[in-house]
Amino acid sequence: MSEFLAMGGYAAFVWPSYGIGVGGVALLALVSLRQWRAAKAELARLEAAGLSRRARLEDRR
């Protein structure tokens, strides 16, 4: 196990590479998910306040 972790003496280069690769993509996915949730919540808030494009058309009738 410790031999595996040592990566033939290159642990300082191999492990950060995997950390950056996996961490970078995971962080981007999480941020994107949070932005999607925030946008959905904002739209729901507007629609709950009766502010949709359809509601506006109905106002005019």
């Binding site: 999607w36 959905k40 739209l43 502010l51």
Partner: peptide, 27 residues
């Protein structure tokens, strides 16, 4: 696959954000 999944998610977000902006602009 990860690239495609994140792009699709972000596209959905952009579409919602533009709808929100359109509603606010109309108001």
């Amino acid at each position: 696959l990860a690239f495609a999944a994140i792009v699709l998610l972000r596209m959905r977000t952009v579409l919602i954000e533009r709808r929100v902006r359109a509603i606010l602009a109309a108001r």
